[in-house]
């Protein structure tokens, strides 16, 4: 039986003033908030709020591989498990992982693997668990971004971070960072991730249609957006430590403030 409210999309995806439905410009990202060290038990963890997306990632490893036959004698393995909570989407999702979740897990693992030195950890695994608590378009990109953050927080040596964003086309216009509605109602969707140590693309999918000129524009717009996302990642990782350094290096100043 269908739900009471239907999951319908509006006819027009741009407002009269040319902005998008949520008031964004075509190349504007949704508000992004990140945090690291959110799960005490994990070796590394990170939390990301990207618009309405809320995602938690945790890293365990290097540790013994279960089941044992997956272990490789000459190198470590990276395993990513992307899962969505039942309540993270409009229709309640079934609790068991589906095909979509398995595919996304795989592409995120492939995206991050070139950054790691897995040959240094033979016979072991790094496991990245990504739990999408609330989803609103672009979760695979957000998940890739937060997974990189969690690995860095775990102290796993890596060549650089990786950032991801989706660009797409709605009503013939190219836009950055598709929201849930834009994703479902739009004409094209191109999730892309970049590894920063060599600025090369490490995740790329595309659904829709585009001509060559559009493709170039897609990539240019994505690159600009990715730089912003990368900056937020860097700030998030550093801020906790730098803040403490500043507080402790100037104790007199702190006391003055207390006195006032």
């Amino acid at each position: 039986m269908p739900l009471i409210i239907k999951d319908e999309y509006p006819e027009k995806l741009f407002r009269k003033d040319g902005k998008r439905l949520d008031g964004r410009e075509i190349n504007e990202l949704r508000p992004i908030k990140m945090d690291v060290g959110v799960i005490k038990n994990a070796d590394g963890s990170a939390y990301l709020e990207w618009g309405n997306n809320k995602i938690i990632a945790a890293v365990y490893g290097p540790r013994e591989v279960h089941p044992h036959h997956l272990a490789k004698p000459d190198r470590g393995i990276l395993r990513v498990f992307y899962r969505m909570a039942t309540f993270s989407v409009f229709d309640r999702k079934r609790p068991a992982p589906g095909r979509r979740e398995k595919e996304i897990s795989m592409i995120i693992a492939d995206c991050i693997e070139p950054l790691l030195f897995l040959e240094l950890y033979p016979g072991t695994s790094f496991e990245v668990f990504i739990e999408v608590m609330d989803a609103d378009g672009g979760t695979r990109c957000a998940s890739t971004t937060v997974a990189a953050l969690a690995l860095a927080d775990a102290g796993v040596p890596m060549k650089s971070l990786v950032s991801a964003v989706a660009v797409g086309k709605i009503d013939g216009k190219i836009i950055v960072d598709l929201s849930g509605i834009e994703d479902k109602a739009g004409d094209a969707d191109l999730p892309i991730a970049i590894t920063w140590y060599n600025e090369e693309i490490s995740l790329l999918q595309f659904d829709g249609n585009m001509d060559l000129e559009e493709m170039n524009k897609f990539l240019d717009l994505a690159y600009e957006a990715l730089k912003n996302i990368h900056q937020i990642q860097l700030d998030t990782l550093k801020s906790k430590y730098v803040k403490l350094q500043e507080e402790t290096s100037n104790p007199n100043h702190k006391n003055d403030n207390k006195g006032e």
Partner: peptide, 14 residues
């Protein structure tokens, strides 16, 4: 329903 996510502890398995 309850799910013990593997992020929550090394004791929990998928």
């Amino acid at each position: 329903m309850a799910e013990l996510l593997p992020i929550a502890s090394p004791l929990f398995e998928r």
